[in-house]
Structures are given as structure tokens and as C-alpha cells.
Design a protein around this nucleic acid. Structure first.
Lengths: 222, 222
DNA sequence: CAAGCTATCAACTGATCTATTGAATAACAA
DNA sequence: TTGTTATTCAATAGATCAGTTGATAGCTTG
């Protein structure tokens, strides 16, 4: 009986190793970045505003927790999410926290600014089939290269105004980015509307799309 | 830009409040117990081998993280999982850790003892429809009362040998319990086989079954 | 209201976690 | 080889967390 208690404790102890990985906001941001595309330590540190040493340490913690894989590429090291379980877990945590914690909702609104109208996945699929809309991926080009929704064209946010002419004026534009909490898509829609276009954002982003088995193309990062 | 960084930090900070809840083995065990049925602080403390004060503190942490609800019942307080998101999250963490962390797999084998043959959900549904098997819920009676697979009969593990006569000898017996890491079902199958019965365990338990929308009945705990 | 039980609070100790700093290592190129 | 860059290591100080203990508050019952 005491034996059984010890074995059970060991089991929960082992599971908590992965649980601890989700206890730091810095690690969550790293996971969120990796959900888009594999990246090197340096890129991750820059994108998350951390020192290289600190990012490296957190990445090692994520690695020990089995959530990321590590691959040497010459002088640099590229980290990537470890399988769909890791992605699913991060998305589930984000979703649950948005539903159950008012503070998350508030912080999200604060970060995203005024809400813009969204399109559901099903509606998008249907209208894409009809050739009714233009789908635009407004993430950085490398993330598009690492994987994107089939039929989307890549126009990174900072090139949006410059490349407006590429978008047929008689079609509605649907913009998507990293996920429901990514400011890029919101921003893109606001700017498209300011330019007189009819635009909405996809309700969530590339990782959610990929995970729900929608048709998608996979490339290696450039 | 600095403004945006601050807002983004606040967002990840808020999400990490929920993430921190998964960082302690004690809290994970409490979540696992609550996945079966709502319980009072005292029951949870006893079942997890913690002092009341410590269990109470961890439950408050889970409450602050939005993972459990709290309800006063006279002199006691009953905690319950907060919605399916909390359950889904715990199951996803357990699943991911079992897949990605060798140590979890090892600890699980150690706790469960020799592996016993399992039946998948689909096969069980099919054979239940044919009336081909007897489905037995070997969890404590209160957990059965709080919810169980439709068509199952409740025979708590410690009454198993005493009530063997209730099981038709010409049918295969399928036992299920709290989940894939619960020793009850394993133990039950081993004991049934020792008694000369043809028995297997369901590959996972009641919470997984309920979450995957299989037919189920819901009662309040006794 | 007094007794008895359940749950929570408050304070404290030891342990663990985080971010920073500066040094060390690994791969590569000249 | 030497220099260069990316990553990791080691040491540290401050912050946060975990579990214990003893006291307190809330509800129910006599």
C-alpha cells in the first residue's frame, strides 16, 4: 500500500516535469513562436525580447520537458515543437485560459485593440471553394515558407500598403496570422479597411488550421 | 512598440497563471481525482495523502487558475473541475507527457504492474451493441454514481471476488476505471483471470469516454 | 450559545525558480 | 592557427513556492 503510494507519487512527479514547463510566461511565448516555425536560439531571443543566455536556458527547460526538439545546424541550434502533442497542449492551455480567466481575456483585448469582424473556418473553406475571397497570410515570409493554408498568398504586414494592388478590389480579403491572439491579422484588417477594402480576419491562425487537418502545404523553413 | 511589448507580456503573464497550476504533482493528483467526481476538501486530502491545510491551499491555487469551481455545502466545501476545458487540458497533459517523456512511461509501468490486454473504445461499443460482453465499473460507488458509461454495472474493486456470481460466466468481462493510468482496472482484470474468467480492460477510463461524447448518464454524487 | 467539525488563514523554513553576468565551448572561416 | 559568432555553462542574488504548524472563521447541532 505504501509501495503503491510511492509509485503513484513518482508518476505524478514525472508528469509534473512537463507541467512545470508551462509555468513561465517566457516559456509560453517561446512555445507560441515555435508554433509558427522552427527557429534558432538567437531568433527566439530576439523575437521574445530576452537575452540569449536566458532564452537558451528556457529552451533547455522546454527540451527537458519533452516539448521541443533540438537540432544543430553548423554554428547554430534550431529548436522546434516536439510533435503535435506539444502544439495541441499549448493551444488547449491558451484556449482554456481565455475561457476561464477573465484576466486573460482582458489582456488579450488590451493587446489586440478594437475587435475586428472574424470569419469561421467552415465559412472560409466554403468561400475559398467558390473563389469568392482572397486569403492573405500576413505573417513574416519565413513563417509562411514553413507552412501555410493552401491557397493563401503571403503579404507580410509591413508590405501591406505597398502591395495593395495585388489584391483584386472586387473580392473580400480574409487575413490570418499566428492565431486568435496575434495582433497582425487584426492590424491588417484595420489597415485594409482604412484603404477602402472589404476585409475580415480568420478567427484563428495557421497552427490551429494545421492541427484540425485542413488541407495544407508543408515546406521547410528557408 | 514598447507599449505593444508590455501588453504582450501581460497576456503571457496572465496565461501563465493557469500554466503554473500544472507545475505541482500534488495539484495534478487533485485534478485527477476531480476528473472522476466533485469532492470535498477533506475527501481530496484523504485520497491524496495530504494534510487538510495543504490540500486546501492547492485547491485554492487551482481555483485561482480557473481550473476548479468551489461550492459551499453546509460545513464543507465541494470542489469540481471547471468545465470540459479543464478536463481536456489535464488529459492532454497526461497524454503528451506519456508520449514524450520516457520517465512517465516508466513510472506508469512501475505503478500499474504487468500490462493486461486492453479493448479499444470502438470495439467495446460494437460488442456492447451485440450484448457480447459485460462492462464493469470497478471504481468506488460514489464515482460511479457521479457518472459512468451507459450499460456498465458498478462493482467496486474491493467487492470483486465477493460478487463474482453477478457476472455471467459465459461472457467476456471488460473492466474500466479512472483512466489508462489507474491501477484499478488492471488489478480487476488480473483478479478476474485468476478466478478463471475471460477479462480485458478498457484502454482508458470514464473521463476520456465522457469527453469523447459517447452515450453516458449523469447523476449527482450521493 | 456552546461544542464540534470543516475549511481557511497566517507565519515561517527550506527548497526551487528566474534573470543576470561573465566565462567557456563548439563550429566555422580566413 | 586565429578570430568570430552562436550557444551553453557556472555562479549568484532575489523572488517565488511548498509544506508544516497553530490559530481562526463558518456552519450545524444540541
Amino acid at each position: 500500500m505504501a509501495e503503491s503510494r510511492r509509485a503513484k507519487d513518482a508518476l505524478f512527479e514525472a508528469i509534473s516535469v512537463m507541467g512545470k514547463a508551462f509555468a513561465s510566461p517566457v516559456r509560453l511565448e517561446l512555445l507560441d513562436l515555435l508554433a509558427q516555425a522552427p527557429r534558432t536560439v538567437d531568433e527566439l531571443a530576439r523575437a521574445s525580447g530576452q537575452t540569449n543566455a536566458n532564452a537558451s536556458q528556457h529552451l533547455q527547460a522546454l527540451h527537458a520537458a519533452g516539448l521541443v526538439t533540438r537540432e544543430r545546424e553548423g554554428t547554430r541550434v534550431r529548436y522546434a515543437l516536439a510533435g503535435d502533442e506539444a502544439l495541441a497542449l499549448w493551444l488547449a492551455l491558451r484556449e482554456a485560459s481565455a475561457v476561464r480567466l477573465a484576466e486573460v481575456e482582458r489582456a488579450a483585448r488590451d493587446y489586440l485593440g478594437e475587435d475586428v469582424e472574424a470569419v469561421g473556418r467552415d465559412e472560409l473553406v466554403e468561400r475559398l471553394a467558390r473563389g469568392d475571397v482572397v486569403l492573405v497570410d500576413v505573417r513574416p515570409a519565413e513563417e509562411f515558407a514553413a507552412g501555410h493554408i493552401e491557397g493563401a498568398r503571403s503579404i507580410p504586414l509591413e508590405e501591406l500598403e505597398r502591395r495593395l494592388a495585388e489584391l483584386p478590389p472586387d473580392h473580400e480579403v480574409v487575413a490570418y496570422s499566428r492565431g486568435p491572439f496575434c495582433a497582425y491579422a487584426h492590424d491588417a484588417v484595420r489597415r485594409l479597411r482604412a484603404a477602402g477594402r472589404n476585409a475580415r480576419r480568420l478567427e484563428d491562425g495557421w497552427p490551429e488550421w494545421r492541427l484540425s487537418h485542413e488541407p495544407a502545404r508543408h515546406h521547410r523553413a528557408a
